[in-house]
Each structure stands twice: as structure tokens, then as C-alpha cells.
Amino acid sequence: MRRLLVAVPYVWLVVLFLVPFGIVLKISLSDIALAIPPYTPTLDLSEGWTGFKAFLSQLDLENYVFLTSDDLYWKAYLSSLQIAFLSTFFTLLVGFPVAYAMARAAEEWRPALLMLVILPFWTSFLIRVYAWIGILSTEGFLNQFLMWTGVISEPLTILNTNTAVYIGIVYTYLPFMILPIYATLEKMDGSLLEAAEDLGCSRMQAFWLVTVPLAMPGVVAGCFLVFIPTLGEFVIPSLLGGSDTLMIGKVLWEEFFNNRDWPVASSVAIILLLILIVPIILFQRNQQINKEADQ
């Protein structure tokens, strides 16, 4: 029974990660074809071992070589990395003060504030992104409001620019930043700050020397939780971004749907995964260190 329980995460890993990964990897080594499915070779098990060998011999790295032949791909990866980095930074910039304020709020208010942060999850993510179209468009609420207050006389073009993408990502992923930071700040012993003050720190120094280092595990967790999905983000850039918003998620979509080139699309996906593995491993290590520190 215990062995069975121990096996659960491994089964999970194999079924939900390794098997799909293997399939995508296999397709990335195949060639495009006009057939069902639209690539070749396909594995024919009826031929037995020889069929398998024949299948293996037809796989090659051609698609990966192709990715290097056009600067579109590495530019898209770079641009995605840039957008992911900046979005994570902006999310942290907004999320930390929110989490801090929540953790400093009166105890009886905290569940309500926490609820407010989680509440948007009750609506479809897509609908919330669509709502931003209504807010940011030229005739949208934001422009109407700003023109009404007289701050601007001409409507701002925000929708369909990278600015809108950043707004959308920061908005969407904010709870993923707030919650881990809040969790670390909330369990922080208030007497630590008093101790810092007692030992000669000003409030500001105490914040930088005690609060910030102690919030680091939460900050790191939040940053990864934002950075990793943002890198492959497709929906937000395609709804809020402009035609020049270049992200690898969109390139992947085009390879898959417009070019119907599943093998090249799979290679793009494999490389994206390889790029993500580095931060994912760092994230895991951070979690591990925190766990040890808690013990």
C-alpha cells in the first residue's frame, strides 16, 4: 500500500509529463506530410521490431536545423524572454506592496482581503482579458475617463500594443505573485521588526534588512509562478497585443495551425520547454530550501 502511494507522483510524472513529452519529441524528429496524422513516419507496431527500427531510422534533427535558418525563431524566444522578465518585474512591483499591505492589515480583515485577491478566479480568465479590451480600447473606459478628467485631449492608443500585453499579464498573474509573498509575510513574527528597531534600525532599514530578506522565498516563488507561464503565453498577446507583439506562443500557433507543420511546431515547443527547464529546476530547489528552513 505504501509503495503504491509512493508510486503516485511517479505515475503522475510519467503519464502527464514524460509520455506527452516523448510524443512531442518524436513528432519534432518527423517530417511534415499531407496525411492523417500530418507527419511521417508513424510507428507501426504490427511490423514488430523491424518496423520500430525502420521508424527510428527515419527520425532526424532536420526541423531543429531549420529553426536556426530563420532569425524569426530566436528573435521570438528572446522577445518572449524579455516580455516574461519585464512582466514578472512589473508584477512584483505591484504585487509586493499589495501583499505587504494585506499582511499588515488587521487580522479580522485578512480573510476578506485574501478573498478579494482570489475572487477574479471565479470568472473565466478569457472574459477578464476581454474586459481589458473594453477598458483599454480607444473608445474604452480608460480613455473616456482620462478625457473626462481632462488629463488627455486625444485618446491614448494602449490596446494592441505591448503596453496592453504587460497590463494584461500583470493583471492576470498578480494573484500568483501576491499569494506566496503574502504567505511568507503573514507568518513573519512581528517582533522581528521590533527587534530590528530596538537594535538601531529605522523603519525603512528594518524593512530592507528584515522584511525583504524574509519575504524572499515568497518573492522567488511568485516570480517563478509568473515567469514560467508568461514565457509561453499565447492568449494575452493575441487578444491584447498588436501585430508586432512577437511571442513564441504565437509562432508556435502559426507553425501548428497556419503551416500545419506539426514537426516544426513540436521542435519549437521542445526548445521552449528546454528554456523553461532551467527556471523550473531553480524553482524546485528554492522550494526545497524553504522546506528545510521550515523544519
Binding site: S191, E194, A196, D198, V210, L214
Partner: peptide
Amino acid sequence: NMMFQSYALFPH
């Protein structure tokens, strides 16, 4: 200076 009941040692 004060020695706190919880000691308030900086865990980091």
C-alpha cells in the same frame, strides 16, 4: 535593548 520573549532572532 530588549530581549524578546520569542527571542526574535532573524532567521535569515
